[in-house]
Simulated scan of single mutants.
Amino acid sequence: MSSPASRSRSMRAADTDRIQVAQLLTDAAASGTIGVSEYESRLARAYAAQTCDELDRLSADLPGAITRGRSGTCRPAPSSTLLAILSGYERRGRWNVPKRLTTFALWGGGVVDLRYADFTAHDVEIRIYTIMGGQTILVPPEVNVDLRGVSVMGSFDHSIEGEGAPGAPCVRISGFALWGSVTVKRKKRKAA
């Protein structure tokens, strides 16, 4: 007969469980406990994990690790808007990615860098609007991307190299560019 603890570890992992382990791994990488290559490897396995036991094995040796018996709550960050009017914006480093993000650039530009960010939802929607400017979105190797956008006398990038990892967050990017550009690039994290 299996014990309650062994049954809970063999429970199927929820998206919230995977997001919590991803955040724990990000903390470990930021503090130097694990290196970038180990972080990316563990992160891909965390997003692909099917059970809580798999997630526990990936994070058991890290400070702050907990054994999951049930899915924790993980609330998405509030929707946000980034504006660049005759100016620019940058969203880089460690930050919480909301479920919905809107960006707007008028005669300006901006960069949304998701490589070091914490995803608070499995499915993220980014609406991006550019008029006579340019915006760039940088995504890490494991994230899945769905691009849909239009351009008039400008460009809206519809190609991104590489595939994301199974179970990793999916970023859906839509919007338009008028006399401007929207570029999406898959880019690796830099070693510390």
Rank of each mutant, 00 (worst) to 15 (best):
S80V: 09
P98I: 09
R115K: 09
P141R: 11
P78I: 08
G35A: 14
L43F: 02
G64H: 07
T136L: 12
A117Q: 03
G72Q: 08
S37C: 04
G72M: 03
Q135H: 03
I128T: 15
E54D: 13
R94G: 04
A49S: 12
E125T: 14
T102I: 10
V97E: 00
L114D: 00
D53Y: 10
L138C: 02
R94K: 12
R70W: 05
V152Q: 06
F119M: 08
V139D: 00
T81A: 12
E54Q: 15
P63L: 06
V111L: 15
G108M: 06
V150L: 14
L101R: 00
S59C: 12
P140H: 03
E90A: 14
D146T: 15
I131H: 07
W95I: 04
L82G: 00
R42D: 06
A65Q: 05
G154H: 01
P76Q: 05
G133D: 08
I131L: 14
D118Y: 09
S71A: 15
R45N: 11
S79N: 12
S71M: 03
R115F: 03
R91N: 06
D113N: 04
Y39D: 03
L58P: 04
P140R: 07
D118P: 01
E142I: 05
P78N: 07
L101Q: 00
V150K: 11
G154C: 05
G149L: 03
L82S: 09
A46D: 04
N96S: 15
R92V: 12
A117E: 01
D113P: 00
N96D: 15
L83P: 04
A105D: 13
T130W: 01
R42S: 07
F119T: 02
G93P: 08
D53K: 13
T73V: 13
D113I: 02
V36D: 11
Q135C: 09
T81L: 13
Y129G: 09
L82Q: 12
E38N: 10
L106G: 08
H122A: 15
E40V: 06
A117I: 01
R91P: 00
P98C: 10
R75F: 07
G93L: 09
V97L: 04
L101T: 01
E54P: 03
R148Y: 10
A84Q: 03
Q50P: 03
S87M: 06
R127M: 07
S155F: 10
A65I: 02
L138D: 01
E54W: 07
S79I: 05
N144D: 11
A46S: 11
T136P: 02
S87D: 12
I128N: 12
R68L: 15
G88P: 05
S155I: 06
A84P: 07
L62E: 05
R57S: 11
S41R: 14
V152K: 08
V111S: 05
I128G: 07
L138H: 09
A49N: 02
D61P: 03
Y89E: 03
G88E: 08
A44W: 01
R94L: 13
R127C: 08
L106A: 14
R70P: 02
D146A: 14
E40P: 02
L62D: 04
